[in-house]
Simulated assay, not measured.
Amino acid sequence: MITVKVTYTVKSEFVQQNLENINGFMQDFKEMKHVPFRYNVYLLEDGKTFLHLAHYQNEAAQKQILAVPSFKLFQERRDASDIGHSHKVEIMKTVDVSTDIFG
């Protein structure tokens, strides 16, 4: 399993647009029932920092998700919004889970 955590902070005036951009790719993700992955997005307490948490069963699933056009468009718009040096990507190793993530 591949687990990726991405955090970034947008300017206050871009929060609503970012939420709409997220909704765009999440709608496409929800239709991809045959791909073994889980993807969650959170808005932190400050109201402008986003956390994306992705679980991919394997590298093939990750490549499929990263190639979705609406997700690529989201990334382009996010990066163009001037997030500065706040963008952080962390690859995490799963130690244990209480339930089967892909079950």
Rank of each mutant, 00 (worst) to 15 (best):
I2Y: 03
I2F: 08
T3F: 14
V4Q: 12
K5V: 10
K5L: 07
V6E: 10
V6Q: 01
T7A: 03
Y8N: 11
V10Q: 09
S12F: 03
S12E: 13
E13K: 11
Q16M: 08
N18K: 09
L19H: 06
L19A: 01
N23Q: 15
F25I: 10
F25Y: 05
Q27M: 02
Q27R: 04
F29Q: 05
K30I: 01
M32F: 04
H34D: 13
V35L: 02
V35W: 00
N40M: 14
Y42A: 12
Y42F: 12
Y42T: 00
L44D: 05
L44I: 01
E45P: 00
D46I: 10
D46S: 10
G47D: 03
K48G: 06
F50G: 03
F50N: 09
H52P: 01
H52T: 05
A54D: 11
Y56K: 09
Y56D: 05
Q57F: 12
Q57S: 12
Q62N: 01
Q62H: 14
K63M: 05
L66Y: 13
L66N: 09
V68Q: 13
P69C: 02
F71T: 08
L73K: 14
E76C: 06
S81I: 13
S81T: 12
I83A: 01
I83T: 06
G84N: 07
S86P: 01
K88H: 11
K88R: 00
V89Y: 04
E90A: 11
E90K: 14
V97N: 12
S98I: 15
F102K: 01
